[in-house]
């Protein structure tokens, strides 16, 4: 499987080349275009079994779809183009060991060997991180494609790093984050417009997005005219 990400960062699409028998698993509705000799199989389980109904439910509560689409090439040199629902970027993460924690709705596609599950991050993070209550947990070996709202930037954390709420896309399992104030004073944190932030500790890769949908909605909402009729 060969992956090429084009049109970055605002309108990114992933162009994936598959050889006969190769499969890519992706989010329902992510396919933009594809060659004619690709067959799609929709199920709640990962390709070849594993997971199933419970995994589907877990994905559902984490902000993903209950079903997964498995596209398999029936001939050589088949192509599929995938894209996220919102305007934004796509990043490729090579998972070799452990797991990757992905915010709900940022998982776009992965190798069929990757298990897609959900994980609970705790009440505090659920309430204040600006992300979903449940997160997607990708484990196994293979490529994972991540999508975002706005551009994705990758950070190699070694020590501590701070990200504003609502801007996390994904992070490696060797990282841990806690909710914290943006400045020493809680009042100052809120007056400065930053409020609470996510303080990461440890070592590993962190993917952040330049924008977040709720802020965009808040900015856009007041400018929209009321629907008539």
């Amino acid at each position: 499987m060969q992956i090429e990400i084009t049109n970055r960062p605002a309108s990114s699409v992933a162009r994936i080349q598959l050889q006969e028998g190769e499969t890519v698993t992706c989010e329902v509705g992510a396919m933009i275009a594809m060659s004619t000799h690709l067959v799609v199989e929709t199920s709640s389980a990962k390709k070849g079994g594993g997971g199933g109904f419970v995994s589907g439910l877990k994905r559902l509560v984490s902000g993903e779809n209950f079903f997964l689409n498995h596209f398999t090439a029936q001939a050589a040199d088949q192509e599929i183009i995938l894209g996220p629902g919102l305007l934004g970027d796509i990043a490729r993460h090579r998972l070799q060991s452990g797991h990757l924690v992905v915010q709900g709705s940022s998982w776009l596609a992965s190798d069929p060997g990757i298990q897609i599950d959900a994980t609970f991050q705790g009440i505090g993070k659920a309430l204040f991180s600006g992300e979903s209550v449940f997160w997607v947990k990708c484990s196994g070996t293979g490529d994972v494609l991540l999508s975002s709202f706005g551009a994705i930037y990758e950070v190699h954390v070694d020590g501590e790093y701070i990200v504003d709420t609502g801007h996390i896309v994904a992070y490696e399992d060797t990282l841990q984050f806690q909710m914290d104030k943006a400045s020493k004073s809680l009042i100052g944190s809120f007056l400065g417009g930053e409020g609470l932030v996510c303080r990461f500790k440890g070592r590993g890769k962190l993917y952040c997005q330049s924008h977040n949908p709720p802020s965009f909605g808040q900015a856009l909402g007041p400018l929209l005219t009321a629907r008539s009729g």
Binding site: H99, V101, T119, Y171, E172, D173, T174, L175, Q176, K201, G202
Partner: peptide, 10 residues
């Protein structure tokens, strides 16, 4: 100790 789960030993 650390990691996403808080139970990873480094």
């Amino acid at each position: 100790m650390g990691g996403a789960s808080g139970r990873m030993v480094f």
